[in-house]
Design a protein around this nucleic acid. Sequence first.
DNA 1: GCCAACGTTGGC
DNA 2: GCCAACGTTGGC
Length: 155
Amino acid sequence: MAKKYWLMKSEPDEFSIHDLKKVKVEAWTGVRNYQARNFMRDEMKVGDEILFYHSNTKPPGIAGTMTVASEPYPDPLQFKKSSKYFDEKATKEKPRWFLIDVKFQSVFQNYISLDQLKEETKLSEMKILQKGNRLSITPVKSTEFKHICKLGAGK
DNA sequence: GCCAACGTTGGC
DNA sequence: GCCAACGTTGGC
């Protein structure tokens, strides 16, 4: 199976690439969208590479990379009553939400702002740049991934 | 803080 | 199964 590439959004106030650098590995909790869940549950494989996107910040953009570090498993927060991600319809027998662990890979030398991404004609097909796309996890083409890494390295 | 775009819920 | 109402995302 060929390696796949992804982009995952997070609000840096909640969890940033720098937080990930400190903890090395983190469970990607809190996804409550079926499409995004399906990507984690059905399509991600250990070793897949991921772009870490900072959303809802100034400026939004891609801050670095990480990798998939586990098989999919149920998001523990769906069972935790005190969590805002608690889901009363989820049971241990029939969990509704799945996630994977991510592992830190790199912080980009150059943070790539959304404005900059928009200027790259090679990246014009990326989901993140389409109008109205709010999906927090999207597939990325290997060519796009490599191009972005080059930009991030300061080329 | 605004609001467009999209997803989810629930009445029928 | 439709669709209006509501909630959320996320750039600006």
